[in-house]
Amino acid sequence: MAEGASHAEQLLECARRNNTDLFAEIGAQLLDNEEAFGQLINSTKEIVSGNGPLHIATLFGNWDVLDLMLDVPGVEIDPQNRENQTPLHVAVKYSAEEPELGYFIVDNLLDAGSDPRVLDSNGLRPVSYVVNNAKLLELLNNAEYAGAEAAGVSAAVGNDDEDDGEDEGSASDSE
């Protein structure tokens, strides 16, 4: 890396080349401010594509550095690029070329909290990009269902708190 490269340029390079040593170096330089590293990851973008480090690492299947990024406090798991695609969209596309590693990355992104219901600028969710991979399709469909269920449970719990338990039988009224 050129001596004058900014942390953002170095971070993009880490993502492109799966360079965990450089990633650790950047982290060590920002050690005095724990939030700064997460903010750097969140704010760093390629100019043309709008891809951030998570997108780039996923695009190239660079799991080692992606895993390290996901462990940084404050990292946004679902940043969107210029096409409004999240790293999960990119991972699903990657799985068409590398089914096993792609599945592994998708599974780990979901475990980290990635939302499979995010729409890109074409109005498509990550599941829409699955190509000939029934196992991946099932994983994403289950994650979407679990997310919808969790959102429904949260809404129901929120409503119960607001009502203070009044009119508990009224759920059948809203068909």
Rank of each mutant, 00 (worst) to 15 (best):
L11N: 05
L110S: 02
S128H: 11
E138H: 08
Y94N: 00
V130M: 05
G152K: 10
L137D: 11
D64F: 08
G27W: 04
G4M: 06
D71V: 02
E166W: 09
P73N: 11
E138S: 12
E175V: 09
A155R: 14
A57D: 02
V75G: 02
R16P: 02
Q29Y: 02
V131E: 14
E144G: 06
L109M: 02
G27N: 11
M69E: 01
A151G: 04
N62E: 09
E46V: 06
D111R: 15
G38I: 10
E13G: 08
S128Q: 11
A5H: 06
G165I: 07
V153H: 10
T58I: 09
L124Q: 13
A24P: 01
G4I: 07
D164V: 10
N142F: 07
P73F: 08
D107Y: 08
L12F: 09
R125L: 15
D32W: 04
A151W: 03
L140V: 05
S95K: 04
I56V: 15
D163H: 12
E25M: 10
N18L: 06
P53E: 05
E100M: 13
E3F: 12
V48E: 14
G27C: 08
S114G: 12
S154E: 15
G152A: 12
L109W: 03
L31K: 13
Q10G: 07
E25Y: 10
P126Q: 08
E162G: 01
P126H: 05
